[in-house]
Design a protein around this nucleic acid. Structure first.
Lengths: 205, 205
DNA sequence: AAAAATATGATACACTTTGTATCATAAAGT
DNA sequence: ACTTTATGATACAAAGTGTATCATATTTTT
């Protein structure tokens, strides 16, 4: 039997490279980082880098897979379209990003960030989609929405994520708690409209 | 009197460079374009390029200034927070982008696109902001909003723009008209909530 | 524990791209 | 016509990318 993906050296090297990139991205920003920088930080050689990743972007994707798993685990336990506008589930995302603001700001503002934004957006949209379907099934309102659920979900995703991204560049303007509450509240009414559900408005705390 | 910025040759060269980049970006995508590609297409020399722009990004910004003026002129005559949810002003943006979909898709999906997204987002947000202030002044509701106008505007901007960007990658799913109507309708209720104005819901056409 | 397999590091190389310098020439402005 | 300035050709230094080779070190397998 061979040892295709299980060699200790391989795992060690790849982990070191990932850690190196994540560490550097917070210092000098993704775009300015060279392969040499990465292997210096990882204490390995340039040749070795190319044996594992085709280029910097492929390494970034490997890093994102890791980060992404973390993020998903953060968001897993909460309901994103919580039909109570006062309890913003997106707050979990704000708090998560707040913990390593410098790092995530560097990542989400890098040149290759568009792909990352899309990835998060689509994940959020999908999560919202499933929740809406569940909620509507319970209320026996499925297939009766004035706007396709796909678009309602997408609207929530871009609305919430858009404010998150803005806030990351302007973190002092409002607290994470306030942002989450406000953002969720506005999106909430769009969702109700899109799904054909209406509720009596409640005052903001 | 000198001729600082008005030499015919300068104007001709810079225009040729801008056109070259815009043309190439639709063919091979922004990231893959080299300075040599640009000057070949523009039928000038690399040295000349550097006399006018520091790098590719600076040229892109010059291009965007031009495009951006066009875009603003497109959006100028319309009200972005039109308080009638059935008349979506953002449709103008959809129609504008639809005209040169390949070009704008290439630009808005390029590696450096995050800065462009932000620029459009902030423009939209600012435009919405001014309109809201006007509307609220008329209704004598200024400074009485449950959510800061800045955040309401931003929410509208990211909501509308987010759907536009998604649609550009999925242009066949729904028509520009439908997207605009749906997006505007959902945002509309968020705005009403954010501003403390309420209206009786109307059915979607 | 020995043998086989494989990942690593050092070095070297070809290649692409970037950005600058120089200088004769062409084309604009006055 | 005269002056000023932009252009193009050529050359060059520097940085970065990606590949090839081979001896060495480490891991897995027997």
């Amino acid at each position: 039997m061979r040892t295709p993906e299980e060699d200790l050296r391989v795992k060690r090297t790849e982990k070191a490279l990932r850690n190196a990139l994540m560490s550097l991205v917070g210092k000098k920003g993704y775009d300015a980082i060279t392969i040499q920088d990465i292997v210096d930080e990882a204490e390995t050689s340039r040749v070795t880098f190319y044996r594992h990743y085709r280029d910097k972007n492929e390494l970034l994707n490997a890093c994102l897979d890791t980060i992404y798993d973390e993020l998903i685990q953060c968001l897993e336990p909460c309901s994103l379209v919580n039909l109570n506008p006062e309890k913003p589930p997106i707050l979990i995302l704000y708090k998560y990003l707040e913990q390593n603001l410098d790092l995530y700001r560097a990542i989400l503002n890098s040149q290759g960030s568009a792909a990352i934004h899309k990835r998060i957006r689509d994940y959020l949209a999908q999560a919202v989609y499933h929740e809406i379907v569940e909620e509507l099934t319970m209320r026996q309102l499925l297939n009766k929405t004035p706007i396709p659920i796909q678009l309602v979900s997408l609207q929530v995703a871009v609305g919430e994520l858009g404010l998150v991204l803005w806030w990351m560049d302007n973190p002092t303007a409002y607290s994470a708690e306030y942002m989450a509450q406000v953002s969720h509240r506005m999106n909430f009414w769009g969702v109700l409209e899109g799904l054909g559900i209406r509720q009596t408005p409640t005052p903001l705390a």
